[in-house]
Amino acid sequence: MQADNKIFDDLVKLMNSAAGTIAGVGREAEAGAKARAKEWIGGLDFVSRDEFEAVKAMAAAARDDADALRARIAALEAKAGAGVSTEA
């Protein structure tokens, strides 16, 4: 009976160390894959979220400015048109 317990204990220790090794290999493979993906993506011409949001905000501000200028031009044209007489 004592020999059976020793064999069982050794088997449990072997399985535990195998599980730990497999988990470590999995973590190492995941870290390596992430590093390769970051390296590959880093070589592409992607912009960061912050850069995208900044350009998006600048474009919205430019549209607002353009709309304001269009309204101002329309008002000036209306004012200039009202002052022009139709006499020839």
Rank of each mutant, 00 (worst) to 15 (best):
Q2L: 14
D4V: 15
N5I: 10
I7P: 00
I7G: 00
I7S: 01
D9F: 02
D9N: 08
D9I: 02
D10R: 07
D10H: 06
L14Q: 09
S17T: 11
A18H: 08
A19S: 00
A19K: 05
A19Y: 07
G24E: 12
G26F: 13
E28A: 11
E28V: 07
E28Q: 11
E30R: 10
E30L: 11
A31T: 06
A31Q: 05
A35D: 01
R36P: 00
K38H: 10
K38W: 06
K38S: 09
W40R: 05
I41Q: 05
D45I: 00
F46I: 04
V47N: 11
S48H: 01
S48C: 01
R49D: 09
D50G: 02
D50T: 14
F52K: 07
E53L: 13
A54G: 03
A54V: 06
M58Q: 08
M58R: 12
A60Y: 12
A61N: 05
A62I: 12
R63K: 07
D65T: 08
D65W: 03
A66T: 10
A66M: 07
A66S: 11
L69V: 13
R70C: 03
A71P: 00
I73K: 11
A74I: 05
A75C: 00
E77L: 07
A78K: 08
A78R: 13
K79Y: 06
G81T: 15
A82R: 11
G83E: 15
G83T: 12
S85R: 14
S85Y: 02
E87I: 14
A88D: 03
